[in-house]
């Protein structure tokens, strides 16, 4: 029955690998899934983002990409939002002016979704956040 034993060991290993997310959390994962609460800008300062919130959640990286190309390559220094407001297309000067605590906003979400933008290797954060 040696062969049968080997095949069953193989099957067992395969099942363990496939179910990694199930038992992987036992080895150090959080007991409850969830991310730390995001800290939004002070409502006295702003109540809305540049575009609608749901759109921003999903598309903010595309907006940044567009701003970058607009400013650096085409010299466009103004972004007009769909609600008609005007913004200077800058990561640090505009986004982080409202979202001034990057650790408690951008990073909390990115750590959870496991996104590691390389932007901060060059761009600064007001207040010198990580």
């Amino acid at each position: 029955m040696g062969d049968r034993g080997k095949a069953l060991v193989g099957l067992g290993v395969f099942i363990l690998l496939v179910t990694f997310p199930l038992w992987g959390r036992l080895a150090g994962g959080q007991p409850v899934p969830g991310r730390d609460d995001l800290v939004y800008p002070d409502p006295a300062k702003a109540t809305d983002c540049i575009e609608a919130r749901d759109w921003m959640t999903a598309n903010h990286m595309n907006l940044l990409n567009r701003w970058r190309d607009d400013l650096v390559r085409r010299g466009v220094t103004e972004y007009v939002s769909s609600s008609g407001k005007r913004y200077y297309p800058s990561l640090t000067k505009t986004c982080l002016d409202c979202h001034d605590d990057r650790d408690k906003f951008c990073n909390r979400c990115h750590d959870y979704a496991h996104v590691t933008p390389t932007c901060w290797e060059c761009h600064t954060t007001p207040g010198g956040g990580a």
């Binding site: 997310p21 899934p33 969830g34 749901d54 959640t57 999903a58 959870y112 996104v115």
Partner: peptide, 17 residues
């Protein structure tokens, strides 16, 4: 199309918990 990755991760994690 862009989707809300954070929400999708919430769904998957809740499944595995």
């Amino acid at each position: 199309g862009k989707v809300d990755i954070a929400a999708i991760k919430e769904l998957m994690l809740s499944l595995f918990h």
